[in-house]
Design a protein around this nucleic acid. Structure first.
Lengths: 202, 202
DNA sequence: GGGCCCTCATGACATTTGTCATCGCCGGCC
DNA sequence: GGCCGGCGATGACAAATGTCATGAGGGCCC
C-alpha cells in the first residue's frame, strides 16, 4: 500500500529533485506538486493526498496557513512542514495548526521518507534540535496587543503610522512598545523586534 | 567527456536530491559535496572539479566568498551560484568575484544541468529576471562611509554605539545617517536599512 | 589654481521616541 | 465584593534622533 504525497515548495529545483528521490521509494508516490500556498490547497483538493509535505516559506500562503486550511477541508490528510531555518515560534504555530511533522532541510531524503511514513502511520515527528530550541525559548511574555504593535513596528514605521494601522492612540502605542521593550530586555524597539523574531514570538 | 561537479549547499535534503538528479545526466558527474563554505573550499582543493555549484547562504563562508577563494586557488574551476532569494547586490558581488553563473532555485534541474554545461564551456549565464532586477536597482548612491554607518545601524544599535564601533563622533554618525536616509527616500534610518538591503547596497 | 566631492566635526534646533504616573473600563477569579 | 491584569488613553518629562548650517582638511580632475 503506497502513501500518496503532495509536495509544495516554491523552489522548482528542490521540489523536482525531491519528487524524483521520493519516487524512488516504492511505497511513496508523489501525486501532486505545487509552487505556492494557494496552489497547494487546490492540488490537495483535487488529488486528496495522504500526506502533504509543505515548505514553510511560500508565496501566497505559508506552510502553516496551508496546513490550517487542509486540516479543515481534508481531515484525512496529514500535514508536515519542511523548512530551511526553523524558528521556535514557527514550530509552535505549526503544531497549533495540527501539523504532524516538522523537519529542517538539513535531513537526508532517506530520513525524510521515513518521517513521511511515520506521519502517515499516525505518529508525530519533530526535529529534536528544533524542539530543544522551542523549549528553551519558552513562552512569550508579551500580551496580544504588545505583540501586534511590535509586529507593526517591524519595518521601521514611525509611531504615528503604527497607531493609524492599529487604530490606537499614538500614546498607547508608545506604552505598548515601551512595555514590550522592557519585557524583552531590549534597549529600543528595533532590537526588541529582532529579539522577538529570533525567539519566534512575533 | 564528463563535467566534474562540486556541489555545496548546507541543506542536506537539497544537496542530496540535486546530486542524484545531476548524476542522471550522463555527461555530468558530482565528484564532491560540501555543507559549508570552508568544507567547499577543502573539497575543491582535494577533488579539483571543473564546475563548483555553490549555494549563496552557507555557514562559515557564503557562496561568493568561496568563489573568490577558488578563483585564486583553482583558476581552472568555474564557479556558479544557486540561490533561493536573489538580491541585486548579491549578483553584483558574485560577478565581481568572477562567478560565471547565477541562477535562482526556481529553475528546473534540467535547466540547471544545461547551465552547468554552458558554464563549463566557458559561457556566462545570469538569470534574466535577476539581471533585470539588478539593472533596475541601479548603482548605490551611498558613499563608502554612509554604507558603513548604515550597516552598523542595521541591528538597531543606538547612535552612541555606532559611533564607538566606527570610531566616529556621534554627530558625524547622525550626519551620515541623515544623508543616507534622504538619498534613499526613507523616513528614518530603519526603513533606510531595509531599502538598502532590498537593493543590495549594504 | 579653482572646483568638486568625500570625510569628519560642532552647534543649534525641532521632532520622535522612551519612560513614568495616573486614570477609567472591563473581565476573570477567589 | 475586592483584587488583579489587560486594554486604551492622556499628560509630562527626559533622552534619542533627524535636520540644517557651517567649517576644516584632503584628494581628484580640468
Amino acid at each position: 500500500m503506497t502513501v500518496r504525497v503532495l509536495l509544495a515548495d516554491d523552489e522548482h529545483l528542490i521540489r523536482g529533485a525531491l519528487a524524483a528521490l521520493l519516487g524512488l521509494e516504492d511505497d511513496l508516490e508523489v501525486v501532486a506538486e505545487a509552487a505556492s500556498g494557494p496552489e497547494a490547497i487546490a492540488m490537495a483538493r483535487a488529488h486528496r493526498p495522504d500526506v502533504a509535505v509543505l515548505d514553510l516559506q511560500m508565496p501566497g500562503a505559508d506552510g502553516v496557513r496551508v496546513a490550517t486550511a487542509l486540516r479543515a477541508e481534508l481531515p484525512g490528510c496529514h500535514t508536515m512542514i519542511v523548512t530551511g531555518h526553523g524558528r521556535p515560534g514557527h514550530l509552535k504555530r505549526a503544531l497549533a495548526a495540527g501539523v504532524r511533522g516538522f523537519v529542517p532541510k538539513t535531513v537526508s531524503a532517506q530520513r525524510l521518507a521515513e518521517i513521511i511514513r511515520a506521519v502517515h502511520a499516525g505518529s508525530r515527528y519533530v526535529d529534536p534540535e528544533l524542539a530543544a530550541d522551542a523549549i528553551s525559548a519558552g513562552d512569550s511574555p508579551l500580551t496580544a496587543r504588545e505583540a501586534e504593535v511590535l509586529e507593526l513596528a517591524a519595518d521601521g514605521a514611525p509611531v504615528a503610522e503604527i497607531a493609524r494601522r492599529a487604530s490606537l492612540s499614538p500614546g498607547t502605542v508608545r506604552n505598548y512598545l515601551s512595555s514590550a521593550v522592557s519585557k524583552l530586555g531590549a534597549e529600543n524597539r528595533h532590537t526588541a523586534v529582532r529579539l522577538a523574531r529570533e525567539r519566534g514570538w512575533v
